[in-house]
Design a protein around this nucleic acid. Structure first.
Length: 478
RNA sequence: GCGAGCGUAGCUCAGUGGUAGAGCUCCACCUUGCCAAGGUGGAUGUCGUGGGUUCAAAUCCCAUCGCUCGCUCCA
């Protein structure tokens, strides 16, 4: 990683805290690794992401319904899903020095291979030694589950064990028969869900990118067996389009297509949509063709039928599923990375536009630095800010407040009369507000105001009555 | 999880055993006729936390929590 990108992530984290987007949880207690709080601006950003997704995936489609299932489900769900066995890293402990190591890693280092015994358990080959102290006195490989465990009811015994969901998808699969029976849906159709999920990650890293508590937006789209490939391709394309609509251009997104030997045994295809973060190109969303694996497993483990009766073909079958699964927090982080700019802008009297700042440099004569978040208007926390040009002139203040009250009925809008007008513009630049609407002395004559564009800093004068329509147009169709 | 580095005000940081600081930010008033940092006044830190050494600890030692980087892992 270069020094420059390093600086950028630090600068972004610093701005996120300074302006109230995202910061560590439980700060007075020293923080807690892998958990984050979204402040006043961050929670608006996240709401906007969720709402844009829900509109695109549910409200504007005829073939998808929504769901909000419980975070804690019957523990057998996680046996059926494979999470109880699959979500583990086998570890061995050294009895001599009490250190703990990854079993597969330890074997590989010593030129051996972890052995599997017939009952499915893992065993160390002969002659393995502790990499730390050299003792051969090692425990058998043991699994440490990445699911958070808790107890249901007052008694903390084995029969009361439950887990916080490590993904939202299983709620959809488990509810599949009920939704089919109650919602008049017909294959192909989808069930969408947004919600928190929890994984006890060994190593949270890269700001919020890998967290222990995170939020997913998942669609399970059920299709006729045999149509998997075409629907998979359809959803990959749909999702890329959606990212563009919230301000992540296709140029910075990539598709990582899984090779045959990388796929889970039940999957026929998987494509990750990745984004060029400063710390590397990393996944935002995975789109997998999972066959009928999930429904089949729940049918087996529950003993109930998960089959679908297709009235068109008069067949009974387990639908196959395409799963676009996105992380809200990762999308929020990508949007913040994409939007963040340090610029040098001309001061009064200097011609020309803003130039990108050199990290750590000082602006040339006639320029001064600004930080601007170029968030797409549809995801920006505030859609506009309203200012009286001067706060000590009551008619300006009164008219500005009236305009503010008018606009806030429709969108989150910010009002500010504090300090010089230029400073107020800059404050809004840093939090990504796309428009600054200023009431000045001419407003008192003809009721026009100026609208200042965040990105170009250019101003246009329009009738106050047209401001709402201008904002609406900028929000687009998202 | 391992190794290395780091933790002082909201932010960026100075302060290496002897009375906690600067710049920016923030608040009040003034000023200000469109792009921040003009005036006056003000607020904010038991120096991440807990122990220990010492007459005395932000400073030295131990533990712990957190952050960054590398390895590892993964969504």
């Amino acid at each position: 990683m270069s020094e420059e990108t390093n600086l950028t992530m630090e600068a972004l984290a610093s701005l996120c805290k300074r302006r109230g987007f995202i910061y560590q949880t439980s700060e007075p207690y020293g923080g807690l690794n892998g958990f984050w709080d979204y402040g006043p601006l961050g929670c608006e950003l996240k709401r906007n992401i969720r709402e844009a997704w829900w509109r695109a995936m549910v409200h504007r489609r005829n073939d998808v319904v929504g769901l909000d299932s419980a975070i804690i489900m019957h523990p057998r769900v996680w046996e059926a899903s494979g999470h109880l066995e699959g979500f583990t890293d086998p570890m061995v402990d050294c009895r001599a020095c009490r250190r703990r190591f990854r079993a597969d890693q330890l074997c590989e280092e010593q030129g051996a291979k972890l052995q599997k015994v017939p009952d499915g358990r893992l065993r160390l080959p002969e002659g393995m030694k502790c990499p730390s102290c050299g003792s051969p006195d090692l425990t058998e490989p043991r699994s440490f589950n990445l699911m958070f465990k808790t107890f249901v009811g007052p008694v903390e015994d084995a029969s009361a064990v439950a887990y916080l969901r490590p993904e939202t998808a299983q709620g959809i699969f488990v509810d599949f028969p009920t939704i089919v029976n109650t919602s008049r849906v017909k294959v192909p159709f989808g069930i969408a869900q947004i919600g928190k999920a929890f994984r006890n990650e060994i190593n949270p890293r890269n700001f919020t990118f890998r967290s222990r508590e995170f939020e997913q937006m998942e669609l399970e789209y059920f299709v006729r067996p045999g149509t998997d490939a075409q629907w998979h391709e359809y959803w990959v394309n749909e999702r890329i389009k959606w990212y563009a609509s919230i301000g992540l251009p296709e140029g910075r997104l990539h598709r990582y297509v899984y090779a045959a030997d990388e796929l889970a045994h039940y999957a026929s295809a998987c494509v990750d949509i990745t984004y060029e973060f400063p710390f590397g190109t990393q996944e935002l969303e995975g789109i997998a063709a999972r066959g009928d694996y999930d429904l089949r497993r729940h049918q087996e483990y529950s003993g109930k039928s998960f089959e679908y009766f297709d009235a068109e073909t008069n067949e009974r079958y387990l639908p196959h599923v395409i799963e676009p699964s996105a992380g809200v927090d990762r999308i929020a982080l990508a949007l913040l990375c994409e939007a963040y700019r340090e610029e040098w802008v001309p001061t009064a009297g200097v011609q020309g536009g803003a130039i990108p700042a050199t990290p750590g440099g000082t602006p040339p004569t006639g320029y001064e630095p600004r930080i601007v978040m170029r968030l797409a208007p549809c995801v920006a926390p505030f859609k506009a800010a309203v200012f009286p040009l001067l706060k000590n002139k009551p008619p300006l203040v009164e008219r500005a407040q009236r305009l503010f009250e008018d606009l806030r009925r429709r969108w989150p809008v910010f009002y500010d009369e504090q300090g010089a007008i230029g400073r107020r513009y800059r404050r809004q630049d840093e939090i990504g507000t796309p428009f600054g609407v200023t009431v000045d002395f001419q407003t008192l004559d003809d009721d026009t105001v100026t609208i200042r564009d965040r990105d170009t800093m250019a101003q246009v004068r329009v009738p106050a009555a047209e401001v709402a329509a201008r904002i609406e147009a900028a929000l687009g169709t998202v």
